[in-house]
Write a protein that binds this DNA or RNA. Structure first.
Length: 427
DNA sequence: TCTGGGGTCCTAGGACCC
DNA sequence: TCTGGGGTCCTAGGACCC
């Protein structure tokens, strides 16, 4: 008999970005695949076969170029339009099985199964096979009485293929054995730093951690660490969160393919990032109160002069209007730009975000009519960009050059989001 | 030549106030 | 002039996640 009140499932997509590329290209089955970051800089996703070749996560692409060639690794630039769309399909499919779902990241969701009919493990198997059939994306599902234990179960499901992609810790006879097989830094909520610290105390796996004293853990790892501990003991501390919160901050930043020294060029790039944050704010129906600009030189080139700085400006009125954001960004850049440095990365961050609807009006706001006209212009721009591809329409300050700072040598087509690039059936 | 991008939360300590 | 207690707000830094 189990006294479990809650049953969580953690569903995540196996090697998600690599699986997305493979889903539209059956010729890639069994072939090693890697997906590269912006600028094709480093490896951010690997198929099972690529992992087996010893290609680590975050590996600089240039170092592994020879191996890619020698072993016939299929290399892709990241294609977030495709991954975002595939994510939505996977989540929509999962959502058919339970109303209690929290989308946790682009490739992960927590589901509560205790209000559903049938054995949780049977349900998980059904979810898994349906997603595979409908989207072509393989997922793994772990089941446990808390989110943290569902994560543990998910790891077990992945580790041993004989589980067939699903595993349940609920009513499992030997939970200790499973916990003992989880390295300390593989526990959800324990990263490299705490992992090292705990190992210094002789705590090397989840079973040992789960037996620690609650106050001892709290003192050294804050209340979060204590929650992780309790959750491993089966005590629910981290509930399913289905609220759609407005984000606290939105960032758009890039590392450049080649260094930028020119202030005007930098201002153009920054303006583009400000415009992107504006689009995302409007997509959320939000406005931001403050905007920060940051610039950095190449942190790997210690032989060159280093400089990094950030400046924050308050917007006169919380806004999502691109020209407002660009103006603020240019003001902030003025405050921190220093000539003579080779800039390698820059970004724009907005915060003080609130819903536009129901926002408390400030003194000295421009007349509603004028605001409405601004808004109409932005909406038209967003519609055009949604239809014809991002960046089709831009404000002049963003510059005319086409994404010259981005290197994307291995981009796959936008199969699902652009009708011109739909895969052809048959030949 | 070549090393990503985008988030959240917690705590300690200082400033300031009564 | 010095001392004490208690509270709030803000920021920087550090940890984590995908």
């Amino acid at each position: 008999m189990s006294s479990t009140l809650t049953i969580f499932a953690l569903m995540d997509c196996n090697n998600f970005y690599a699986s997305c590329e493979r889903a539209f290209n059956p010729g890639l089955r069994k072939r090693p695949i890697v997906v590269l970051s912006n600028n094709d800089g480093c490896v951010i996703a690997r198929s099972h076969e690529a992992k087996a070749l010893g290609i680590p996560m975050g590996a600089p692409a240039f170092k592994f170029q020879p191996l890619f060639k020698e072993r016939g690794v299929a290399v892709f630039s990241s294609n977030f339009a495709l991954y975002g769309d595939m994510s939505r399909r996977v989540m929509d499919t999962a959502a058919r099985f339970t109303p209690d779902m929290e989308i946790y990241s682009i490739d992960e969701a927590f589901l509560r199964l205790d209000r559903m009919h049938g054995r949780p493990l049977d349900l998980a198997r059904k979810i898994r096979s349906t997603i595979l059939q409908w989207t072509g994306i393989p997922v793994s599902i772990g089941i446990g009485p808390t989110k943290t234990l569902a994560k543990v179960a998910n790891r077990e499901a992945k580790k041993n293929p004989e589980h067939g992609g699903t595993f349940s810790l609920v009513d499992y006879p030997d939970q200790d054995r499973i916990l003992a097989g989880i390295e300390i830094e593989d526990i959800w909520g324990i990263g490299r730093q705490y992992g090292k610290k705990l190992r210094d105390f002789g705590i090397g796996n989840a079973l040992q951690f789960s037996r620690l004293d609650k106050d001892w853990v709290r003192k050294r790892m804050t209340v979060n660490g204590m929650h992780t501990l309790l959750e491993l003991q089966g005590v629910l501390c981290i509930p399913l969160d289905q609220t759609v919160a407005t984000p606290k901050s939105i960032v758009c930043s890039r590392t450049f393919a080649k260094a930028v020294t020119d202030k005007d060029k930098l201002a153009e790039l920054i303006s583009g990032y400000a415009a992107r944050t504006g689009e995302r704010l409007r997509g959320q129906g939000c406005v931001a109160g403050q905007l920060q600009v940051f610039v950095l030189t190449d942190r790997f080139r210690l032989d060159k002069p280093q400089y990094s700085n950030a400046a924050t400006v308050s917007l006169a009125i919380p806004s999502s209007h691109t020209p407002d954001l660009i103006r603020a960004a240019r003001t902030a850049l003025e405050q921190i730009f220093k000539p003579g440095f080779e800039y390698r990365k820059a970004g724009v961050m907005v915060f003080g975000i609130e819903k536009e609807q129901g926002r408390r009006l400030r003194l000295f706001e421009p007349p509603t009519q004028e605001r409405a006209r601004y808004k109409a212009v932005m909406e038209a721009m967003d519609r055009i960009n949604a239809r014809w591809g991002a960046m089709t329409m831009r404000v002049a300050a963003e510059g005319a050059e086409k994404r010259w700072v981005m290197r994307q040598a291995h981009l796959s087509p936008r199969y699902t989001t652009d009708w011109k690039e739909l895969p052809r059936a048959g030949h």
